[in-house]
Nucleic acid binder design. Structure first.
Length: 261
RNA sequence: GCAGGGUUAGUGAAGCGGUCAAACACGGCAGACUGUAAAUCUGUUGGCUCAGCCUUCGGGGGUUCGAAUCCCUCACCCUGCA
């Protein structure tokens, strides 16, 4: 059955330019953006997560930003439920839902309709305690949700590295260090939200054990290793249409939408 | 100028006659991932015609069955005395 709402998804590594492509598509297709990002859902974590500021949003509605406090627990299941609700809601209002983000698990939960085991399941993988043991019935399902276009942006490592380094400088000029200091005081350093690349790197700088230059270098390094994991995650997804051209992305998107008319 | 210390794979750093292609850390590469995922975890990392072979431990020359490890010498770096 071909009854699912059309959905456009944009994935890519951190700093690859997902946000600007999403806004461009939203303007052309009259869309609204759903952010699939495990860190921008936190209130107050703005600069360090490269959360699009109001001005950058260019009047396009952005959903799933500032949903919970950094101290609160938030999981894929929460995201999946809310994202599906939003997709219906946006479609019902005559707009096009565009889901964009770098959190592979969040994206896959929606586009592959993951079925999660009950919360009371406590069996853990002995090698990696953060993973829940899965039973054989919940093997990875790679059947893409109908009416879904998944666009992927891929940059060369050198280009990405340069963009990340420049972004760090920009964040700092915008007041990133103050943001880290305030969040650290308010929520403590132990909350998992604060384990994100930039916050983790600048904690030591704020506590005085490393220099500014060292902190920046660690931030870049952390972002690069995140980017590496994101690349690995997305590579195995055969449903992704890779592109690095905005025009091409627009073509793919308009084709999908016209097929649905 | 004299005395002493140093020079090891991408980087830092062990090794101090054989079991060394060389510990360990970082970086690199590859992978996993279904209610913490910007997190967490795994493998790999000199070359090759890859269960074996070849070339590496600042350069050159020796000693030895055998050297990254000992000796001589050259180069560069650091420290003490002049």
């Amino acid at each position: 059955m071909d009854t699912r709402e059309p959905l456009i998804v944009i994935v890519g590594q951190t700093a690859s330019g997902k946000t600007s492509l999403a806004i461009k598509l939203a303007q052309i297709l009259d869309g609204e953006i759903i952010c699939a990002d495990s860190r921008t859902i936190y209130k107050g974590m703005d600069l360090g997560t490269a959360k699009p500021a109001k001005e950058e949003q260019a009047g396009i509605p952005h959903h799933m930003l500032d949903v919970v406090e950094p101290s609160e627990r938030y999981t894929v299941v929460d995201f999946q439920r809310e994202a599906n609700r939003l997709i219906s809601d946006i479609t019902n209002r005559g707009k096009v839902p565009i889901m964009v983000g770098g959190t592979g698990l969040y994206i896959d939960a929606v586009i592959f309709d993951y079925k999660f085991t009950p919360q009371n399941s406590t069996a853990r993988n002995p090698i990696n305690p953060r993973h829940l043991l899965t039973d054989s019935s919940s093997q990875r399902d790679t059947t893409l949700r109908p009416n879904t276009l998944v666009l992927g942006i891929q940059l060369e490592r050198e280009v990405l590295q340069k963009r990340i380094a420049e972004r760090v400088d920009h964040m700092i000029s915008q007041g990133f260090i103050e943001e880290v200091r305030e969040l650290g005081q308010k929520y403590g350093w132990q909350v998992s939200a604060m384990q994100a690349p930039g916050y983790r790197a600048f904690r030591e700088y704020i506590e005085g054990s490393i220099s500014l230059e060292e902190a920046k270098a660690i931030f870049v390094k952390n972002d690069l290793s995140l980017a590496k994991r994101q690349r690995t995650w997305f590579r195995r997804n055969k449903s992704i249409q890779w592109t690095n051209s905005v025009d091409e992305a627009v073509d793919f998107a308009t084709t999908l939408m016209s097929e649905k008319q």
